[in-house]
Design a protein around this nucleic acid. Structure first.
Lengths: 132, 132
DNA sequence: CCTCTTTATGCGTTTACACGCATCGACAGA
DNA sequence: TCTGTCGATGCGTGTAAACGCATAAAGAGG
């Protein structure tokens, strides 16, 4: 019961739902998530922290990046929850826009799924985000 | 997206999950919910309020009681969410205990589903709850 | 060692819960 | 109208969350 509440606490925020929606696409590093959501770095990091603590997301360090991924169905309850989320979020307007933005970013050289071209599009995008 | 987050906010608390679990049984008045959860009256009332505002629960006044029920699938997203909850909560230890307590209460004369025996077991239970 | 990129965290501010106590308001029945 | 039962709400307290800014920490690569 407390575990269930913890899962739902993790989902009880628009930004975190957007993050999960992106992670259904696959493993992502923090900077790409920050870029798509267009929030401050600390906000992105903290939301990822909450998702980890809620037991919904795992992370993995690779160099100076950290890659985040969904917990892989240790729990049947989580697996079914993710099924529900995929089904529901896929119809959402914001989710669709985020996915488009993510695909664009990947095409331009984001650092997804460990096969990133280092420091190509990313640095430029960060400058852009900061309005420089 | 914001609507989804609102639903999950409604579910992000153990007591509210317990309430929803009870409401899967059917319409219930506030006093019975308070009795089963064994929380203060204000706590029960406020949680019911949150569930209403989250768009998960409806209420109906009948005399000096208010009956609460689940929103009936106006939204396919809610219907599927409830399906998930029924499936998941039914396996939970606390949920099972609550359901047992509710059935006992109904047998003893609680005011469920509009066919209540007025003021029989209920007043006694309230005194009991208050430790008198 | 120094610098750059990425991520985590301390700080302050604001808002939202969570809880019980006490009280008010709504209603039914005498 | 008076009383009893229910439910909502104002109040105070304590905790947690959300956000950005600034800074530290981790790692890569000169």
């Amino acid at each position: 019961m407390q575990k269930m509440a913890s899962y739902f606490k993790g989902l009880a925020d628009g930004n975190r739902l957007r993050i999960l929606n992106l992670l259904f696409h696959g493993e992502l590093c923090g900077c790409d998530i920050q870029y798509v959501l267009n929030v401050s770095q600390s906000t992105a990091s903290r939301h990822l922290s909450y998702l980890k603590n809620a037991g919904l997301v795992l992370d993995r360090r690779a160099g100076y990046r950290v890659y985040y991924r969904l917990v892989q169905s240790g729990d049947p309850e989580i697996a079914q929850l993710f099924e529900y989320l995929v089904m529901t979020l896929s119809k959402d307007k914001v989710s669709k826009a985020d996915m488009r933005k993510l695909r664009e970013a990947i095409k331009d050289g984001a650092c997804t799924v460990s096969e990133w071209k280092p420091l190509s599009g990313l640095a430029a995008r960060n400058l852009q985000t900061k309005g420089v």
